[in-house]
Nucleic acid binder design. Structure first.
Length: 579
DNA sequence: GGCTAGTTGCCTGT
DNA sequence: ACAGGCAACTAGCC
C-alpha cells in the first residue's frame, strides 16, 4: 500500500504545523483546524493540511465504492477550498500509525493537530500516533468536534455514567443546555500564513468561489494531471480499487438521488432542507412518519452522510435546525422523533459507545444481550446480495449496495429480517455489511441500531417483528420502489409485487419473471419462522445472559455457541447495572 | 418498592 | 378505525 512515498516532501520546509484531517472534512466549525491556523500564525510557519488514505479505514472490506467515492469527492472539495486560502492538502497513503509520524518528520513539523475520533479503534490508533510523534519531539494537540458535546465533559455532567436510555439522556441534555454555537473558519489568519515552498506555485486558479459543477470535473482532471508529480493529488477511485471487485448489481437498476461530496454540498443540502415546504419539513419532521420508499426526493435529509465524514459539523446541523423552528417537542411523538431529536440520538449513542467497553460487539459488551445466533454463510450472503426472495428486503439491500443510503425504516426491515425476525444471524454480521456499504456509516449509530433491532439492547419488545410483506405494503403499496431496484420484477402486477411467488404461473410468464428462475423463491416461510424466532427470543430473555468485560474471551473470538456457561450467568438486571 | 412509559409491528376481533 | 394480545425489560419517577 505504501507504493507512492513522498520524495517531494523531504526537506521542503524548515518548520510547519500539520492539521491531520480525518472525520472532519470541512473548514467551518473545526476547532482543531482553527487552533492549527493560530499556532502556525504564532510560529510564523506554514500550515500543512494532511489526509491519510489508510487500508484500515478505506480498504475494500470496510469501505465500499460508494462511500469511498463520496470521501474522495469530499477530499477534492476540501482541497479546493484549502487552496483558495493558500494551503495545499497533502494526501499520504498507508498505515496512519506509521505514516503520520514519518510525514511529520519529513516535513519538519513542530506539532500535529487533529479532531478527536471517538470510536475504539480510532482512539487506539491515535494513542499510538501520539506516542510515535512525541518520540520524535513533535507536539500533538487534539480537539473535540465530532459530537455536539465533548464526551468527557458530558460524562462528567452525568456523574461519570452515561444514561442507558434516551429518556435519561434527554433529562441530562435539558440540564446542561444546548450545545455551543458553531465557530467560523478563521480566514483572516489563514490567509496571512506563509505558503509552503516557492509561494503560490501552480495554485493560481482564480480561487474565490465559483460554481463547481460541469466544468469542475474537467478542471479537476486537468489539475490532477498537473499535480501528478507532486504526490499530493487526490487519488481516483480507480487508483484505489482494482478493476471491478464490485458487488454484482443487476443491470437496469435505477438508483436513487446521488449525494455529492464536500462541505459546500453539505451546506447547500442543509439549507435546502430547512427551506423545504416553507420550513414545514423541519418543523413538522417526525421520523416514523417519513417514508422509506421515498427516493427522490428522499423523505429525510440524508445529511447523515456528511455528518459521518465531518463535511458538516453536528453543531452546525443542530443550530440550523433549531433556528429554522425545529425546536419543538415533537407533540405526540416526543422530542425523539424530531429532527433535533435525531441529533440527540446520535449524541446519546456516542456517549454510550465512548463509555461502554466493547460497544461494537456482543462479546464483552455489558449492554448487549447474549443470543445464540447461528452461523450461516450462505443465508448471510443471500441477504447481503438481495436474493432472499422477498422483494422488499431485496430491493432495500440493492439500494444499500447501489446508493449506499437506505431510509431508517428500511434499515429496520432488513436488520430485523437478518437477526431476530427471520434468519437468526448475528447483528455483528449485519453491522459489518452496513459498515462497508453505507455512505453514512458511523460506528456508534451502526452498533447501537443493530443492537436495537435485534433486541440485544435498548429495545426489548421482540414480538414486534417487521413483516417483509405487510410493512412493504404499508409504504410501497404499488411497488414503485421494488421495480426501481429489482428489474426482474418490473412487469409483475401490483397485486403480487410483494409476494410474487403467489402469482399464478400464467401471470409470472406474462410478467417475464418466473419465480425460482428469474427471481428467487422466498428463502424462508416468514410467518412460520418469525413465530418460531419469537419463542427463541423469549428463551434468550429468560436466560438473561449479557456480555461482560471481566469474564469474556478476547473480543475477536467469533462466538457461535453462546449458551455455554463461560460468562453472564446472572440475570440481566443484576449484571448489567453494576458495570 | 411500586408504578409508568418507552422513536417508528402485526394480527384478530369488534 | 381501533383496542387488545403478543410477553415482560428497565430507568426514572414518586
Amino acid at each position: 500500500m505504501m507504493k507512492k512515498s513522498s520524495h517531494q516532501t523531504s526537506a521542503a520546509f524548515n518548520s510547519c504545523v500539520i492539521h491531520w484531517f480525518r472525520r472532519d472534512l470541512r473548514l467551518a466549525d473545526n476547532a482543531a483546524l482553527n487552533a492549527a491556523v493560530s499556532a502556525s500564525a504564532k510560529q510564523g510557519t506554514p500550515l500543512v493540511p494532511l489526509y491519510v488514505i489508510d487500508p484500515s479505514v478505506h480498504g475494500s472490506s470496510v469501505c465500499g465504492r460508494v462511500r469511498l467515492h463520496f470521501i474522495l469527492e469530499s477530499l477534492n472539495a476540501l482541497r479546493e477550498s484549502l487552496a483558495s486560502h493558500g494551503m495545499q492538502l497533502r494526501i499520504e497513503r498507508g498505515d496512519a500509525q506509521k505514516r503520520v509520524p514519518e510525514f511529520a518528520r519529513d516535513v519538519g513539523a513542530s506539532s500535529v493537530f487533529f479532531e478527536r475520533e471517538l470510536n475504539e479503534a480510532a482512539l487506539k490508533r491515535d494513542k499510538a500516533v501520539q506516542e510515535g510523534l512525541n518520540e520524535i519531539g513533535v507536539n500533538v494537540k487534539s480537539f473535540h468536534g465530532f459530537t455536539l458535546y465533548d464526551p468527557d465533559w458530558l460524562l462528567k455532567q452525568a456523574d461519570g455514567e452515561a444514561p442507558k436510555g434516551m429518556k435519561g439522556f434527554l433529562t441530562l441534555i435539558e440540564k446542561i443546555g444546548p450545545p455551543s454555537r458553531p465557530e467560523a473558519f478563521d480566514e483572516e489568519t489563514a490567509k496571512s500564513l506563509p505558503v509552503v515552498g516557492q509561494g503560490k506555485q501552480d495554485r493560481d486558479d482564480g480561487s474565490e468561489q465559483e460554481n463547481d459543477s460541469v466544468e469542475d470535473k474537467t478542471k479537476i482532471q486537468e489539475s490532477e494531471k498537473r499535480k501528478q508529480m507532486k504526490g499530493n493529488e487526490v487519488p481516483t477511485i480507480d487508483d484505489l480499487r482494482k478493476s471491478n471487485e464490485d458487488e454484482d448489481i443487476p443491470a437496469g437498476v435505477h438508483g436513487g438521488e446521488k449525494l455529492k461530496g464536500g462541505e459546500k454540498a453539505a451546506l447547500d443540502r442543509l439549507h435546502a432542507f430547512t427551506k423545504r415546504d416553507g420550513g414545514r419539513a423541519v418543523r413538522d419532521f417526525s421520523k416514523p412518519e417519513t417514508s422509506p420508499a421515498a427516493v427522490d426526493p428522499r423523505a429525510t435529509t440524508a445529511l447523515s452522510a456528511y455528518v459521518a465524514i465531518g463535511a458538516l459539523s453536528s453543531r452546525t446541523f443542530f443550530h440550523s435546525v433549531v433556528d429554522a423552528g425545529g425546536d419543538g417537542d415533537g407533540g405526540q411523538g416526543g422530542i425523539q422523533t424530531t429532527l433535533r431529536g435525531q441529533l440527540l440520538w446520535r449524541e446519546h449513542f456516542w456517549s454510550l459507545a465512548y463509555s461502554i467497553p466493547n460497544f461494537e460487539r456482543m462479546q464483552g459488551n455489558p449492554l448487549c444481550r447474549k443470543i445464540d445466533w447461528r452461523d450461516d454463510k450462505e443465508a448471510l450472503e443471500r441477504w447481503r446480495k438481495g436474493r432472499t426472495g422477498f422483494p422488499w428486503i431485496d430491493a432495500l439491500m440493492t439500494q444499500l449496495r447501489v446508493d449506499g443510503f437506505v431510509h431508517h425504516l428500511g434499515r429496520h426491515s432488513v436488520a430485523c429480517f437478518l437477526t431476530r425476525g427471520d434468519l437468526w444471524i448475528s447483528w455483528e454480521e449485519g453491522a459489518k455489511a452496513f459498515q462497508q456499504l453505507l455512505i453514512d456509516h458511523d460506528h456508534a449509530l451502526n452498533a447501537a441500531n443493530w443492537m436495537w433491532l435485534s433486541c440485544s439492547a435498548f429495545f426489548n419488545r421482540y414480538f414486534r417483528v417487521y413483516s417483509p410483506v405487510t410493512f412493504a405494503n404499508k409504504w410501497d403499496s404499488d411497488g414503485e420502489f421494488i421495480r426501481r431496484y429489482i428489474p426482474a420484477l418490473r412487469r409483475m402486477p401490483k397485486k403480487y409485487i410483494h409476494e410474487p411467488w403467489l402469482a399464478p404461473l400464467a401471470v409470472q410468464k406474462k410478467a417475464g419473471c418466473i419465480i425460482g428462475k428469474d427471481y428467487p423463491k422466498p428463502m424462508v416461510d416468514h410467518k412460520q419462522v418469525s413465530k418460531h424466532n419469537v419463542q427463541k427470543m423469549k428463551e434468550a430473555f429468560s436466560r438473561g445472559h449479557y456480555g461482560s468485560p471481566s469474564s469474556s474471551p478476547p473480543p475477536n473470538l467469533m462466538v457461535t455457541e453462546c449458551s455455554s456457561d463461560d460468562t453472564g450467568k446472572e440475570p440481566a438486571s443484576k449484571k448489567a447495572k453494576t458495570q
